[in-house]
């Protein structure tokens, strides 16, 4: 996406985008708190244009609406948290088993590589195991991304599945921590020696979502493309 996507805030607030552009802008807004803030303000402004058009509704409308309302079910509130007992009742054994399977899957087995690299991957694997095995570990999955987080440890790990294509030459995958105060780079996504996306461990403080974008080699100061992954942090 080109950088002037930011200028679409006005068109978006007035519903002046077609469906495709609208979706694209919404994806961009998810990693651009400034765009979202401006869009909300402009929606409030556009609402004044709507208010200026207020007029007395037809007399029959009220009865029709109230009749339909009385036979229309309301939606359940968004994203109910997992019931407490379910969250805590997962046997520790299965978590540890899950962790070791995960580590085996992520890192591959039996491939010889430089000791240093293996050490680094082992150290990372230990952190990942700690997070996945934490008593309060919670998992969020969105698209091809998964974030397992532990508020007790104050850490989370981002896992990108093989479905996320490796960046073409001259490009890198860059991860971003998204919070109310803005978007902060978590650095470039590394590859394991077996060629998979390496897990990325990050502090959870204030972070509501993790995004991954394709950026020019070496990374960017702020995301410049639509995220290939956007996963909430539980």
């Amino acid at each position: 996406m080109n950088p002037d996507v930011h200028t679409l805030t006005g068109a978006y607030a007035m519903n002046a985008l077609d469906a495709d552009e609208r979706r694209e802008f919404e994806r961009h807004m998810a990693v651009c708190p400034d765009c979202e803030r401006e869009t909300r303000e402009l929606e409030r402004t556009a609402a004044h244009l709507g208010m200026a058009a207020a007029t007395v509704p037809p007399p029959g409308l009220r009865a029709k609406v109230l009749a339909e309302v009385s036979r229309t079910r309301q939606q359940s509130p968004i994203a109910p948290a997992l019931p407490r007992q379910r969250r805590w009742a997962v046997p520790v054994v299965s978590l540890v088993a899950a962790a070791s399977v995960l580590v085996a899957v992520v890192f591959g087995i039996g491939v010889l590589t430089a000791n240093q690299e293996l050490d680094r991957e082992r150290a990372l694997a230990e952190q990942v195991t700690a997070i996945v095995g934490a008593a309060d570990a919670r998992t969020e999955v969105a698209g091809n991304g998964k974030v397992v987080s532990s508020r007790l440890l104050g850490k989370a790990v981002l896992l990108a599945s093989d479905q996320v294509p490796a960046p073409r030459s001259g490009k890198d995958l860059q991860a971003w921590a998204i919070s109310d105060s803005g978007v902060v780079s978590l650095g470039l996504m590394a590859r394991t020696h077996s060629g998979r996306h390496a897990p990325m461990v990050f502090p959870t403080t204030g972070v509501s979502k993790i995004g991954v974008t394709v950026e020019p080699s070496g990374g960017s100061a702020q995301p410049t493309t639509t995220p290939v992954l956007l996963v909430p942090v539980a």
Partner: peptide, 8 residues
Amino acid sequence: LAGPIYGV
């Protein structure tokens, strides 16, 4: 809300 909604 009905007046503003119908109006717009």
